[in-house]
Design a protein around this nucleic acid. Structure first.
Length: 264
DNA sequence: ATGGTGGGTAGCCCA
């Protein structure tokens, strides 16, 4: 059994206390972090060593974005795609357990896309769509059992948001984003592991804005984080959970962790 | 319709 987690941590250095809590309580074999907001040299390597996560692939940059995959089982870093073509650190790919035994694990942080869902007036929105198109070209060529996880910054289904109609013009849930993400999905036949286990139209959120204070009253969440597997690998997923409670931990990230267990 | 909060880091950018 291999337990894999994904979490947009919104500064790994600030949030090491809750990362330690998560690793201690949930004990995943592998944790994919997004928005680490640090360069590799300033990554809290010692804290992860102390917890047994001695295998790491860190693709960071100063102050913004950045991803890291930390593991108790051996991994080998083999790619750092720049799907935005602007040098931002938003992806790291590793191979788990060696050729033919484990899986390829892709950790991605899709750009948020700014506030205005119109590429003619908002460059960031265009960059987000272009990022997804480059990911799609890549996905067409994926030929090994692969799991792609991370903050996709898109909530594709009606039940992935607290109010579908109200969010149709809000970046993360616009029809053009959902269509663009669907083309990525179709390019490899990715299986949405989260929705295999928490079936639509059941409510499923992974992010709540810091700007909404009363989460337990209004519950204005969105499912921005995902774990998508190649069809053959998806059959080996035996459990999936979303740790909503982590949104209420001390000094929380605005995202919560996802966990999938595989029988490899 | 607007502004609301949070993080990194040095006058704003990003989410």
């Amino acid at each position: 059994m291999v337990k894999i987690a994904s979490w947009n941590i919104n500064s790994v250095r600030l949030r090491m206390p809750i990362v330690e809590r998560f690793l201690t309580e949930e004990a995943p074999d592998v944790l994919c972090l997004q928005e680490i907001k640090t360069i590799e040299e300033a990554f809290p390597h010692k804290a992860f060593d102390a917890l047994g996560y001695t295998h790491r692939a860190v693709h960071g940059m100063k102050g913004y974005h950045g991803v890291a995959t930390v593991s108790r089982i051996p991994l080998k870093e083999f790619s750092r795609h720049d799907w935005q073509d602007n040098g931002e650190a938003r992806h790291v790919g590793v191979e788990l357990l060696g050729p033919g035994k484990g899986m390829i694990l892709e950790n991605v942080y899709v750009p948020a896309g700014g506030d205005e869902p119109d590429r003619t007036i908002n460059v960031k929105f265009g960059q987000k769509l272009d990022f997804l198109e480059r990911m799609t070209r890549w996905a067409e060529k994926v030929d090994r059992p692969t799991l792609i996880v991370g903050d996709f910054n898109i909530a594709p289904l009606e039940s992935d948001v607290w109010n579908h109609k109200q969010l149709l013009k809000v970046v993360s849930h616009t029809p053009i984003e959902v269509e663009t993400l669907q083309r990525f999905k179709d390019a490899h036949g990715w299986v949405d592991i989260g929705r295999e286990h928490i079936v639509a139209p059941e409510r499923y959120y992974t992010w709540w804005s810091y700007r909404n204070k009363d989460r337990h009253v209004a519950d204005r969440g969105r499912r921005l984080d995902h774990m998508w597997a190649s069809p053959e690998l998806a059959k080996q997923a035996v459990g999936h959970s979303v740790l909503e409670a982590a949104r209420d931990w001390t000094q929380p990230s605005d995202h919560v962790p996802l966990v999938t267990e595989f029988s490899l």
